[in-house]
């Protein structure tokens, strides 16, 4: 085990090379609906329990199913209304279970990225070969069902190994060269995209996905009231939008159909979307488009700046 995963170097949030998003936008805004399938009877992972109750775990399973049966259409309606294309963090077995949902997202040109096979299969305890096989299956499944070459990854149930990001990048390259496997949502260290150090030296970036703005973290973990969640989203936007004048920022709202789409919560989400998309210098986009744009225009500059600042630190300390 390591004290630091070594994915990125210290890079202060001031005096960085200026980012400008397309059209001179100062904030890149994306919404990442997690569309997940939880199994009623998953094999028991030795390190993490899927459900608090012996099977059938009706409470946990059924509220998640609510997201797919009821919540999904509500979220589609509200994202359509504000011109947002979702970037789906997908339990890829859902392509088999609920192809109707995949079709609805596909016809809207939404992005699909990998969130593993099932959200009840954890990475903990997998060998490198097993994790590689799982990741490959998920990327191939997305391609088979949507024609998309999967660019991004969010580990299933945020369960990682030390090799997760390396494996995702490598499998992406094996399958589709540089067109797949080039961004991650698993790290929460920054409000701008950052280059990630991998053993393959692939041009791979972290795209801010935000744990704090995640509806499940807000509602389930932090037990936030719905209207307050709406206010938090607006506050988050206000600050990132202001700072984006100096150098472009990224704001993400990660959602779950079984949280944000409940009847008592949609209003807060909708008001935040209306507020955010009502600003002029916002690039309403997807995770992949942010990663592509950044890799093309800012990745090299960022690498150089990080190297210079790391050297400066080394000199001061010498």
């Amino acid at each position: 085990m390591k004290a630091d995963p070594g994915f990125y170097d210290y890079w202060p949030y001031e005096n960085r090379p200026k980012i400008q998003w397309p059209g001179g936008a100062r904030l890149a805004f994306w919404v990442a609906p997690n569309i997940e399938f939880y199994e009623l009877n998953p094999p028991a992972n030795p390190q993490r329990k899927a459900w608090p109750h012996p099977s059938p775990a009706v409470p946990g399973y059924s509220i998640r199913d609510y997201g797919n049966r009821v919540g999904h259409m509500r979220q589609i309606a509200v994202l359509d209304k504000y011109g947002v294309r979702g970037s789906i963090s997908l339990s890829t077995a859902l392509c088999d279970h609920h192809p109707e949902i995949i079709a609805l997202c596909k016809e809207r040109d939404w992005e699909f990225f990998s969130h593993g096979i099932y959200n009840t299969r954890y990475t903990y305890g997998m060998s490198e070969a097993q994790e590689r096989e799982m990741i490959r299956d998920s990327i191939e499944t997305i391609y088979r069902h949507t024609g998309q070459k999967c660019a991004g990854y969010l580990a299933p149930a945020l369960s990682h190994s030390e090799q997760t990001l390396d494996l995702f990048a490598e499998v992406g390259t094996e399958l589709f060269g540089d067109d797949a496997g080039y961004y991650t949502c698993d790290l929460f260290h920054d409000d701008q995209p950052t280059p990630i150090n991998l053993r393959s030296n692939k041009r791979f970036v972290s795209i801010p996905y935000s744990l704090e703005m995640n509806d499940t973290i807000a509602y389930v973990v932090n037990k936030v009231e719905p209207r307050r969640y709406g206010q938090m989203l607006k506050d988050n936007f206000d600050r990132l939008y202001a700072e984006g004048a100096e150098s472009g920022t990224v704001m993400c709202i990660p959602t779950h159909n079984y949280q944000v789409s409940c009847p008592h919560r949609l209003r807060a989400f909708e008001e935040a979307l209306e507020y955010i998309t009502g600003h002029s210098d916002v690039w309403v986009t997807t995770g992949r488009e942010i990663a592509e744009y950044y890799r093309t225009h800012y990745y090299d500059q960022a690498r150089q700046d990080i190297a210079e600042k790391s050297n400066m630190t080394a000199e001061v300390c010498a």
Binding site: E39, A93, H97, G125, M126, S127, E128, E133, M134, S161
Partner: peptide
Amino acid sequence: MSSSQLDKSHLEYPQRR
């Protein structure tokens, strides 16, 4: 490289349909 390994049921999906 990780030395552990899950048994093969963890990469089998009998209900994937």
